[in-house]
């Protein structure tokens, strides 16, 4: 484990890692509630970064600002060196409640991003089929969302995000509405998937274990107002059996370390 920064001032620009998403001076208020205050953050290309913090720390707000779904009061977002203020094809979002169209089959849901881009039916369905297999849903192409379990529905959501071939995947607590057993399996699959897909993941979660288990770096946010309190890089070897990570010493130490840091925010 490496603690990259303890103070907000020492903005992390880790050596050798090019950043794909740059957050600069982002603030956001909802009425009187200060959701985010002057957040500066870099997301390295090809890595999985988690935004971790107790509820009310503005992590989902920050993710939605990066996605262009929520407007920041001030500050800028750069993706791949370009200033963005609205959703764009280089970013794809995975929703906490899956956000699948219940009237459409799995394959149409997965192909929906491509459908909106005007890709021809046969082409987009070929692509969709490929990613349906990739997320482990082969054979479910023509099922409707209500015929699937929560975990499977989120796999559809993930396949939809992968199908548009965006560089950055934004995941908003993707496993929080998935039951525990499915979540473990899904997390393992996500680790495997990451090695095949050369993509940048930004992952919002409130689960310390989940963050440490899957992340290359973890950004800890403190609540009210939301700001960065620490950045941690758990140096865990994920090349082997994902099962073993849960018993890895580094893993357990990091979870404990983060918990000690977050404890103060929990009443």
């Amino acid at each position: 484990m490496r603690i990259v920064t303890l103070q907000k001032e020492a903005t992390p620009v880790p050596e050798s890692l090019e950043s794909i998403v740059e957050v600069r001076g982002i603030s956001k208020n909802y009425g009187d509630v200060e959701a985010l205050r002057d957040v500066d953050l870099d997301f390295p290309r090809g890595k999985l970064t988690s935004l971790l913090g107790p509820s009310g720390c503005g992590k989902t707000t920050l993710l939605k600002i990066i996605a262009g779904l929520v407007k920041a009061d001030c500050g800028t977002i750069n993706v791949d060196g370009k200033l963005v203020s609205a959703p764009g094809p280089e970013r794809a979002f995975v929703f906490q409640d899956f956000a699948l169209m219940p009237w459409a089959t799995v394959i149409r849901n997965v192909a929906f991003g491509l459908e909106l881009r005007g890709v021809a039916r046969s082409e987009r369905e070929d692509k969709a089929r490929h990613y349906i297999v990739e997320v482990g849903l082969a054979g479910f192409e023509n099922k409707y969302p209500h015929e699937l379990s929560g975990g499977m529905r989120q796999r559809v959501g993930l396949a939809r995000a992968l199908a548009v071939n965006a560089d950055v995947l934004l995941l908003d607590e993707p496993f929080s509405a998935v039951d525990e057993q499915n979540r473990r399996k899904f997390q393992e699959d996500l680790i495997r998937l990451r090695t095949n897909q050369n993509k940048t993941f930004i992952f919002v979660t409130h689960s310390i274990e989940e963050a440490v288990y899957i992340s290359d770096r973890i950004v800890l946010l403190s609540p009210r107002p939301g700001r960065i309190s620490r950045i941690i890089e758990p140096e865990i070897d994920r090349s082997g059996d994902p099962e073993l990570i849960h018993r890895d010493g580094h893993y357990l130490d990091t979870v404990e370390e983060i918990w000690q840091g977050l404890k103060q925010y929990v009443e």
Binding site: K64, G68, D97, G113, L116, R117
Partner: peptide, 15 residues
């Protein structure tokens, strides 16, 4: 309509 369904459409660039 669930707000996330509308956000979904927006995030995938729906006109």
């Amino acid at each position: 309509i669930s707000p996330s369904l509308i956000e979904m459409a927006r995030s995938y660039g729906a006109s």
